[in-house]
């Protein structure tokens, strides 16, 4: 019930960050990342070209390759492909559950991934985005197709709202986002679904 603000105190003092839906081709274009607040534990975000900040993403695609790396600190790197491109995902000893999940899945397989995107700059100036996994679950094609619709809708909603929010304005300024380009991206992703 929407009561007046007085006398109400939240039972939780933080809200869980929602997992944004974003296609690989859009995530790949992201450059801007920032921390909200001064605290070491304040959440970090990357700004998507379509004008939304995200701290966590949810994606479904095809796990095409996985590679175990490191000796003392074992971790997995893997590639997950969606209709627009490739997500680079990783899970290390700080994500033991996700690491065990990846270990048990043999590519190729449809996987649902929840994780946090991070922006890395290589010494030669290239920018890489990798998703640190919270969970990786094997799913079926139906779930993948549903995700493509979900992600298409979310992307179109962001394009429609582009420039109307502070984050949206910042995206327009910093990325010079061309909405037509992203509409085309969505269109092509959807075209790959069997009608």
């Amino acid at each position: 019930m929407a009561g007046p603000a007085r006398g109400t105190f939240p039972r939780r003092d933080f809200e869980r960050e929602p997992a944004r839906r974003v296609f690989a081709a859009e995530l790949r274009e992201s450059r801007i990342h920032f921390r909200e607040g001064e605290d070491e534990k304040s959440p970090t975000y990357i700004l998507l070209p379509t004008g939304e900040r995200c701290n966590r993403i949810f994606l479904v695609g095809t796990l095409t390759e996985k590679k175990k790396q490191g000796e003392q600190n074992l971790f997995y790197r893997a590639r997950v492909v969606d209709p627009t491109g490739t997500f680079f995902i990783m899970a290390g000893s700080y994500q033991p559950e996700a690491m065990q999940q990846i270990a048990r899945i043999d590519p190729p397989a449809f996987v649902a991934v929840v994780g946090k995107p991070n922006v890395y700059e290589t010494p030669d100036g290239a920018v890489l985005i990798s998703v640190r996994c919270e969970s990786v679950t094997a799913v079926d094609k139906n779930t993948r197709d549903r995700w493509v619709l979900d992600c298409a809708k979310a992307t179109l909603d962001r394009i429609d709202a582009l420039g109307t929010t502070p984050d949206g304005q910042r995206a327009v300024e910093e990325y010079r986002t061309d909405p037509a380009l992203f509409r085309k991206l969505v269109y092509e992703a959807l075209s790959q679904l069997s009608l």
Binding site: T143, L149, S194
Partner: peptide, 16 residues
């Protein structure tokens, strides 16, 4: 919830 092909058509219209 499962994949609904009808939604694909309306989203294609929106995107295109």
């Amino acid at each position: 919830l499962t994949f609904n092909p009808e939604e694909t058509a309306s989203l294609l219209n929106r995107a295109g």
